[in-house]
């Protein structure tokens, strides 16, 4: 039987109270939705001296759109993204990624901040947020700082959030009209960690690519990663460019044999989904 160890639990009323609690404890543990946090407590993977529930903090709630920029509070539930009325191409990409998370019941529980901060390489939101160039607003006792999500992950389940900091919000600009988007997740069985997931955004002017962003995640990579595609700007894409992007993606393969597949299988799947993403967003040019 799985049961959490004896814990102390606090539900602070404000971010500043939460930050004080973080600073006063040696092994604090933040939970919001709890889908992974409570599970890890049940598995006794953690022995925190305080569980701090930030899931209801008003300051971490809400999805706003101002000056062509979205601000998504870290305690926004995954379903709130899906139910939101925003429908620009950038937000639509995030919606698709959000609707790929777990199952409908877990999406009613889990939060955007949790999905971003856990650092599970196969989580759905990070590749979409990488393609969107999202900035993470991180709050600490001394103030807040912004960090692009592309430098946030430093290893599987590891990120640059300090022990006494809280992810406040996720911010990104709507790429806007003319952008096409694509999200795809490849897994063996439902609720498994994905083998590879891919998020892409592109704008094509005439026959030239104006902007292309592709990010991959999943158990085939070490951390969710953006593929370097800035060189493609202004180029009329053909087979050669497609192959180059696919090769750049496959170089990101961690490619270890494990229960998610053989190294060769993973490499093949990265290549396949990157090709799908490229063809989908660049589309008619080829």
């Amino acid at each position: 039987m799985l049961y959490p160890p004896q814990i102390n639990y606090e539900r602070p009323e404000s971010i500043s109270e939460a930050l004080s609690l973080l600073n006063e404890h040696s092994r604090p543990f933040l939970i919001a939705g709890g889908t992974i946090g409570v599970l890890n407590l049940k598995r006794r993977a953690l022995s925190p001296d305080l569980v701090i529930d930030i899931g209801r903090l008003k300051e971490l709630k809400g999805i706003d759109f101002r000056d062509e920029k979205y601000r998504i509070g870290s305690a926004v539930k995954i379903y709130e993204i899906i139910d939101s009325e925003f429908n620009g191409p950038g937000f639509s990409l995030l919606k698709k990624a959000a609707s790929s998370v777990g199952d409908p019941l877990l999406r009613n529980m889990g939060t955007v901040g949790g999905n971003v901060c856990i650092g599970d390489p196969s989580n759905d939101l990070p590749p979409a947020l990488l393609a969107l160039g999202a900035e993470l607003n991180i709050v600490g006792k001394a103030g807040s700082r912004n960090l692009n999500i592309s430098s946030f992950y430093i290893g599987p389940y590891r990120n640059l959030l300090a022990k006494n900091e809280i992810l406040g919000s996720i911010n990104f600009a709507e790429p806007g009209k003319g952008y096409r988007w694509f999200y795809y997740k490849h897994y063996i069985r439902h609720l498994d960690h994905s083998v590879v997931n891919v998020a892409a955004l592109a704008k094509v002017e005439g026959k030239k690519i104006d902007d292309l962003r592709i990010a991959i995640g999943g158990m085939s990579v070490r951390v969710p990663t953006l593929i370097e595609t800035s060189w493609i700007k202004g180029i009329t894409a053909g087979q050669e460019e497609l192959q180059r992007v696919v090769k750049l993606a496959s170089e990101k393969c961690l490619c270890l044999d494990d229960r998610h597949g053989s190294a060769e299988y993973k490499k093949n799947m990265i290549e396949k989904v990157t090709q799908m993403a490229f063809l989908s967003v660049v589309g008619g040019v080829l």
Binding site: T35, L39, K42, L105, M109
Partner: peptide
């Protein structure tokens, strides 16, 4: 007990959740 099977589903403030993954 790990939030996969859904046997513990209840409505929480009107939305279905898995009550084994929640304190």
């Amino acid at each position: 007990e790990t939030g996969s099977c859904g046997s513990c589903t209840v409505l929480l403030d009107g939305r279905p959740v898995k009550s084994c993954l929640m304190l």
